[in-house]
Every structure is written in C-alpha cells, then in structure tokens.
C-alpha cells in the first residue's frame, strides 16, 4: 500500500519509479520460481495438449473460447495497429491509461492493481502440496 502511494507521487521519469517497478518484477519472478517449484498443476507438455482438446468441448465452451479469442486478440491487434499508425486518429490503449496515470491517485491505484495482479500471476493456482519433478 505504501509503495503504491509512493509510486503515485513519482513521475514516469523518476529513477525511484523505475527501481520500484524493476524490483517488483524481479520479486514476482523469484516468487514464482521459488513458490512454484514442484507445485504446478500440470507439465508444459500436458498444457500444450489442451490446445487440441477444444474440439471435443461442448458448444457453449467452444463459443466462449471464440469470444475470449476475439476480445483479447482484437484488443492486442487494434493496439498494435494504433501503435504502428502513430496518429491522433488512432489512439493507443496507453493514451487512455495515460489519462488515469497523470493523476497521483490514479497512478497509485493502478500500481496497486498491477502489484496485486503480479502476485496472483506469480503464486496463483499452485497445488497445495509438492509433487514429483515437472
């Protein structure tokens, strides 16, 4: 919480802002590796095989996979197009996020959300007990 407030008071050019973000990233990867050792739900090979299993799913599941793909893929693709165009007619997602981060409270709140997401990505869905080598 305190780090988020501090980050909110910093500008994007501040060395402290860069160091805080860098430290958070390193901590997240370290936590993922240490906390996730022998605690992944499945191997990467097993995960890869789930890509082909979508054909055997029910119609609502197939439709939801398509919906997710369109939403996520569309967002990434359109942001890339806007980034390449570099025009005021094609604002990027960063442009809209910038309207939030230009305010101290917005920047701090967004940083807190980013930290929380990082913690979940690093340590979420691990198995409760250790198992064999993965």
């Amino acid at each position: 919480m305190g780090v988020s407030i501090w980050q909110g008071l910093l500008s994007r050019d501040a060395l402290a802002a860069h160091l805080i973000v860098g430290l958070a990233v390193l901590s997240a990867f370290a936590a993922a590796i240490i906390g996730g050792h022998r605690r992944q739900q499945q191997s990467t090979r097993a995960w890869r095989s789930t890509w082909s299993s979508w054909r055997t799913r029910s119609a609502p599941i197939k439709a939801s996979i398509l919906a997710w793909a369109v939403l996520l893929g569309g967002t990434v693709a359109w942001d890339l197009v806007s980034f390449v165009k570099q025009s005021h007619t094609f604002p990027t997602l960063s442009y809209f996020i910038g309207h939030i981060t230009k305010h101290e409270a917005g920047r701090g709140a967004l940083f807190a959300l980013w930290l929380a997401l990082g913690a979940y990505f690093a340590l979420g869905t691990r198995t409760k007990t250790e198992h064999g080598p993965r």
Partner: peptide, 11 residues
C-alpha cells in the same frame, strides 16, 4: 497459470 511455460509468458 497451470504450467510453467504459460505462467512465465503471462508474468
């Protein structure tokens, strides 16, 4: 987040 490879990608 169920396996190492996608977890590292997401992170």
């Amino acid at each position: 987040l169920s396996a190492w490879f996608p977890r590292i990608l997401v992170l």
